[in-house]
Every structure is written in structure tokens, then in C-alpha cells.
Amino acid sequence: MTQSERPITLLTESPPLVMANSRQTIERFPFPFTRDQFGYSVNVRPAAQGSPGSFDEFLFDIDETYQVETAERERILSLDHARRYIAFPHMIDAQWDFLELGMTSLAADYPQSFELTRNGDQWHWRNRLLNLEHSFTFGDATTLPQEPLEYLGRQMQGDFCLLDQRDNDLYLDAGLVTFPADWSLAFNIGMTFEHWHGPVPLAHEAGIFNRAKRFIMNLQPDDPWLRLNWSITINRRLDTSPEISHLWGPDRSTVTIKNAGSIVHLRVEVQTLTRLSRSHAVLFTIRTYLISLDDLATHPEWAERFRRVLLSLPDEIIEYKGLTRFRDTIINWLGSR
């Protein structure tokens, strides 16, 4: 796309989402802290091994915010498509791999919501949650209304990135990213693994990304892995892209001891890494969960552990995760529970 074609951001508003966590959602929240201290590691474990009803029971988690998230994704794509969905042409095989994995998983794991019938390469897909169905030829992009990654990604929760493994490195060569935690698909597209993680402090020196890259490059099909990442979001916002930081950034200055319980959210990313079968590319999914401090504090042990982790954070991490303005307020709030 030439410079003159690049759109000026058309998102002039990005209201926080109206979605409350039910009791069940709170109970299954992916609380990420296993120790009272912050620490970097390549902290991976096998994916889709969770107990029934847990967030990691299945590879792709569908929960009660499905309708709100898919609608919000549709809104963002209608306004800023060029920067939220990007796929280099050579990634088309990986896109079909993603579609196959996604559809077969969803149909098997949520049979009351999704149905897939396959007759050779003639496939029929039914999504009862969004009330749509579509017949298409697997491998023939002209039989789908959008490219495979976008077509199915619009019907799923989470951001999806396809990494091309070539020349002894991993390249971010395709992605559907509408809910990033302050990173830009449009800027990072085409970067290698260690480069797109460039801004993360401390971890490079500790060799984290070198080891993580080697781990990912050794992945084999049918063996997905999972890790958790966390940050904090003010107000119930999924889209915290840098593109619209002028819309969500000011929220950071509005946190008080009175409103912290309702507007401060712990944001947890459940990241999965899966080797794709035909293309040998890697699917990197980022599934985002938000919980308000009020809801978090219904588990006193979570509140206390979170408080201790916040106390232990190095300055560089506080800065990098954007916590500077309200960290003390949150620590005080958690301590007063």
C-alpha cells in the first residue's frame, strides 16, 4: 500500500465494552501469578489440557463474551481493516491450515454451537452463535467471502498471528489483530521474532527470547503449547492498539482509590503456539481476558498475590506495561481489601 493510500485512523471513538463477568467467568479466569514475585521465563506448558469448564480445556476457548467480542471485532474491521488484518500472499497455505484447525476444533469442542461437514474438499460450516452457514471448497479462496484467516477469525475470540518459519527464523507474516495490548500489527508486520519483541525490557539480556524462539522452531504438529502474559487495562477495553492510544491513553489518569475496583482491570493473555500441518507455519494466538479488581478481589488470595507482584516489579517493567500513573493506587486498593 502506498503512503497516499494509508488511511488516517477512522476510529474516532472506542467506547469501553459493556460486558460483566458472571460468577462462572470469574472462577475460570486465567489468574497468571504462581509466585509472589515478578519473574521472566519461557513459561510454557501443554495447551488444551485443562479440566472441564476451564479456560484451557480446549485449544480455542469460547465464553460468554463471544457475541460482544465478535461484534466489536466487526466494528473495528469495518473502520480500520488495512491495519488490523494483514496477510502476505505466501501465507495462504498457512491460512487454510488455520481454518482447518479452527473449524475442526470448534466443531468437536462445541458441537452445540458449531458444525462442520466435509465431503472431500467440499466443506459445509455452520455457526449457530452467529446464525450463519457457508458451503465452500477447501483450498479455493474464491469460495469464501474473505481470506480464510479473516473469515474464521471473525467468528472466534482472540487475535491470530501466522508465523512463517524460514531462514532459521520466525517471521510475523500474517495476522488478524483487533485486541492488542499496545502493539501494532501494521508496524510489526514482517518482523522476526526477536525484533517484534524488541521493546520488551530485561528479557533479551536474560536470553528469554532466544530460548523461546528455539522452542517454537522445534514445535511439531498436533502438540500445542500455552503461556500466560499479563498487563493492566483501565476500563473494559479490548482494543488498546497504539493506533488509537489517544482514545484509551487518557483513561490512565482517571484512576482513584474510589473507582479503582470497577475501572482497573487485570488483563491476561492466554497465548498458544501450534505448528500447522501443511505449511509448517506456526499459529500464535492471543486470547485476552479482563477482570475488574472488584471481581478479582472475590478471591482474597488473588488480590494479595497480585499486590505482592506489583510491589516486586522492576522500574523498567512498570514503565513498559504502562503502570506508572496508577500502580500505587492499585497497590493501596488491594491492600485495603
Binding site: 501494532s184 524488541g198 488509537i244 489517544h246
Partner: peptide, 28 residues
Amino acid sequence: IHCGTIDGLVEDTTHTCTRCGTVLVVRD
């Protein structure tokens, strides 16, 4: 990052985007 424009020949660590007018910090 806000409008996708690329401006060349920037010498400072702050820069005003020539298209959307946002005052930018130039990161590494």
C-alpha cells in the same frame, strides 16, 4: 502509528506528523 504516514529525514527524537499533525516521540 496513528495514521500510517512515513516521514523521512527526521533528526530529533520528537516529530510532528506531516499528515495528521500528531506530535510524536520517535522510538528506537
